[in-house]
Design a protein around this nucleic acid. Structure first.
Lengths: 355, 355
DNA sequence: GTTAGCACTCACCGGTTGAGAGTGCTAACA
DNA sequence: TGTTAGCACTCTCAACCGGTGAGTGCTAAC
């Protein structure tokens, strides 16, 4: 028993219907609404096969069938392969994104808003990645008994200054000493590299090992945070209008995930160089949203940096629509950031970094 | 029949119980749990009076009583007057807000996070107000047939440039002319003033009245947007854990209000110079949250600018706790922005404005 | 291979019922 | 005169129950 043409057509009909209604679909529905020229009994047999193949689930014995994640996967792959995507109409996007303002963050927020309005799902927009800043100097300055100010000067004269708590009392002299040594060793490296190097350095400098360790963790945090700009989120509340999220507890856990922007960003963040990513259900790797799908796309700025846009919705999302909208939006953002570079100036958009 | 001491004590007990349980409270509960030395029958009589006075509502005849907005108002006023607020423990706040980073936006976000964690309600933090920028020059530049670039140079050399759609085709000459005239008239005024002046100007310049009108609306928008920095929101999903928001539709409308940050900011924004504001139910003036209460407090920077922090929760919120936490947080933020001015640099934090 | 027919399962809906909570009223009491 | 005990009454809520309908699996006939 394999997956023949007819089975596939039936599966497709089931998925289409389920995407529309969110109600388990029965054999009769298929034979009537999507006239296949087959009786419900035949459909029934095929459905039984499809279930055995793992494409359908049955909530309970006398309910209809529900597509499994595997089914959606097949459906999406097929769709992408056959190029059966409305080649979008960027006009709609343009009309919405008729940016009155070119501030980076505003564009990000607005894009998320438009994306969620157009899809009725939750949208996330990540700004273009920034280049890894290279450390020039690192200076530690005593502030109070248990905190030191860390000043990092990176290439381009950008400064990051932050108070870090420590639990040893250290005098200015010692700190100056340490700073000199650290600068010597870290100069020319990126923040991420520096963070990776610190454990080793810590091992060597035994008297201030603790300080070094926490500095390492701190650098890592700083790096991650600096890398990640403002995350745009739109339509988080859209999710509540879908029956799969009528359960308050589920809705709550979804929303608290959305609220922790850092986590969300790392989920959305696009690895690799493909234009699209579609992750279905468990493929997301995030248990909280194991019944959601995530579709992402990229856009790029003139300087070649990449940003990510993504849509999160129930597994039964309207993939083709979402993909086409994402495509159009990606194009639009690339154009916006690519041609005028208005809204670009990404370094400047964290102004208080300015030296 | 007035409001005597005993009635007040009973009312207070009812409110306390309702805040705790969210369940209509009956006479027996009061007489047993909060031993008043009175039988349920007596309580019943008093409750009947309280209802007549408008302090209690009865969902239906055989349910207990529920405090009205008027009751909460009395309760809060009494609480504030008697100084019966735990004079807070800023340590808890400090422990949480041990800012590793002093970026303005990060502090804002973190403060919102801490505030929501500490109260279990939804928290909103508005950055300090910025000084009204004064217009120096206003220039209109044609971009396409139906859009012009508006460049505004304000004092301090800050520039705002934005593409504005128009529906008349205007050539460069005309625009230059208009620009000169506008600059002359608006020079020295704030954006808000300029926006207010434009209708009149529009009336005078009849041939480009339409352009002027849309420019007016645009200025207003720009002003509002520039004024309003990054809005910090925390714990929006907390709301879903309260029974009053178990209804999906209500939850949805609440969350979409929270999502429109501009609207939210204008609701929270603190008018006047009082330390606290408590708005209960309908007092919020926002129909979507007519069964919520909003408590706000202010903090100020060294330069005397004011920011607002607020908590939104169900009307039966734990006012005393919320007020004390807000107090502590306000103090903390004032200190943070007041002493070091780290994280301050508010002008710089919209870096891409930099000329 | 397809289809009609049939028995079976199970969620869902509407009505009923009983328990429980709470009230208002009245009458007795201090 | 204020307080309390008692009682009848109201109303919600949860549980129960039977009917209905959608859907299935299986079998037998085409």
């Amino acid at each position: 028993m394999g997956m023949d043409e007819r089975k596939f057509r039936i599966l497709q009909a089931i998925i289409d219907d389920y995407i529309l209604t969110a109600v388990p679909v029965g054999s009769r529905t298929i034979s009537k609404k999507y006239d296949m020229g087959l009786s419900s009994a035949t459909i029934r047999n095929e459905m039984s096969d499809l279930e055995e193949l793992g494409y359908l689930d049955q909530p309970h014995v006398s309910a209809g069938r529900v597509p499994s994640a595997k089914a959606y996967r097949l459906y999406v792959d097929q769709m992408l392969a056959s190029g059966r995507i409305h080649s979008a109409k960027p006009e709609a996007v343009i009309a919405h994104l008729n940016a009155r303002t070119h501030q980076m963050e505003d564009v990000i927020d607005q894009a998320a808003q438009v994306l969620s309005d157009l899809t009725n799902y939750t949208a996330v927009v990540l700004p273009p990645t920034k280049p890894q800043p290279i450390i020039r100097t690192l200076q530690l300055v005593p502030v109070t008994a248990n905190s030191v100010l860390v000043v990092i000067v990176t290439d381009g004269g950008i400064v990051r200054d932050t108070v870090m708590p420590v639990n040893e009392g250290l005098d200015a002299d010692t700190l100056y000493h340490i700073s000199r040594s650290l600068t010597e060793q870290l100069n020319g490296h990126t923040l991420a590299e520096a963070a990776a190097m610190l454990p080793e350095i810590a091992a060597r400098m035994r008297d201030s090992e603790h300080l070094m360790t926490s500095l390492g963790g701190f650098l890592e945090e700083t790096e991650e945070h600096a890398q990640r700009g403002h995350v745009g989120i739109g339509g988080a509340s859209n999710m509540l209008s879908y029956p799969e999220y009528s359960d308050a507890e589920k809705a709550r856990s979804f929303l608290s995930l959305i609220e922790t922007r850092d986590k969300l960003a790392s989920i959305i963040a696009h690895k690799g160089d493909v234009a699209f990513t579609v992750r279905i259900g468990p493929e997301t790797g995030v248990p909280e949203i194991s019944d959601c799908s995530i579709v992402t796309a990229t856009y790029s700025t003139r300087s070649g940096r990449q940003g990510t846009i993504g849509v999160i919705g129930p597994t039964r999302m309207q993939y083709s629509r979402v993909i086409s909208v994402l495509g159009a939006m990606g194009q639009q953002l690339s154009q916006l950031f690519g041609t005028t570079d208005a809204g670009g100036k990404p370094e400047a958009s964290k102004g208080s970094d300015q030296a």
